[in-house]
């Protein structure tokens, strides 16, 4: 008898069901169950009735947004300059901007803590945002650089030939064409910033708490049901971000294809 090639997928399919799908079902299960075992919404009610957790949640989204915007403002020019200066993909400058992506997040965070120690800067909100931007900037630069360097330069030349000044060329041609890169950069920065936990702890020496830390503390302290509910809330936020960016990305791609 012949074993069909499709059979090769079966072990992995079972593995995925057991160690990817089932764990997520467990999150749902715990989130909608009380400690006594009955099905309940109490964990979610508790979240909305705990001002501290609610505040942390809103604050984390704020920090993630600020970080994302700052990374975009700092990273876009860098990506644009690199794509314009005829650097090859493996040039030292490009490598240097990408290298930090490969270094452990904790180590990079501690390195920024060292910088603040060195500068005798008190750890707090400012260092938190600075540290986050430090950590995630490469993740913004890389995708934008990628789209910009793959961009067909003749669009720019066409715009110039048709009399557009450099500013118009930039705002009407370069920026719209780089939107797919910007979106994946935004996603690559926003999603991890909203879900980090250790980074904020180390950057502020526990003075400021982000939502990830709240979840971790609850899980660590044995409040699995409440922790699972909080994890589910975070998952919903991330799901919304992805849906939003998915449709935007499609539009951006279509626009890119139409021109």
């Amino acid at each position: 008898m012949r074993i069909k090639r499709t059979t090769w997928a079966l072990p992995y399919f079972i593995f995925l069901l057991l160690f990817v799908a089932l764990p997520l079902v467990m999150v749902l299960f715990y989130a909608f169950h009380g400690r006594d075992g009955g099905i309940t919404l109490a964990n979610f009610v508790r979240f909305f009735q705990t001002p501290e957790d609610l505040h942390t949640f809103v604050y984390s989204i704020e920090i993630a947004l600020i970080t994302t915007v700052l990374c975009l403002l700092l990273g876009y020019p860098a990506a644009w300059i690199m794509s314009n200066s005829n650097l090859s993909r493996s040039s030292i400058t490009v490598m240097l901007f990408i290298l930090p992506m490969w270094i452990n997040m904790l180590i990079r965070t501690l390195a920024t803590v060292a910088l603040f120690d060195f500068l005798r800067a008190p750890l707090g909100e400012a260092t938190l945002i600075f540290g986050m931007v430090y950590n995630f900037l490469p993740f913004m630069i890389y995708p934008i650089y990628n789209t910009l360097s793959k961009m067909n330069k003749s669009y720019i030349e066409a715009a110039q030939d048709l009399g557009a000044n450099p500013v118009t060329v930039f705002t009407k041609v370069t920026v719209p064409l780089s939107m797919p890169g910007v979106l994946s950069g935004v996603l690559m920065v926003f999603m991890p910033t909203i879900s980090t936990f250790a980074v904020a702890e180390l950057l502020t020496m526990n003075k400021i708490k982000l939502f990830g830390t709240t979840i971790q503390e609850n899980i660590n302290n044995g409040m699995w049901n409440y922790g699972a509910a909080l994890a589910l809330i975070m998952l919903v936020i991330i799901g919304i971000t992805m849906l939003f960016s998915d449709s935007e990305q499609e539009q951006a791609n279509e626009a890119g294809g139409l021109i």
């Binding site: 999150v27 909203i194 936990f197 979840i215 971790q216 994890a231």
Partner: peptide, 8 residues
């Protein structure tokens, strides 16, 4: 996100 994978 890592934290969700870990918790699940």
């Amino acid at each position: 996100p890592d934290i969700i994978t870990g918790i699940s």
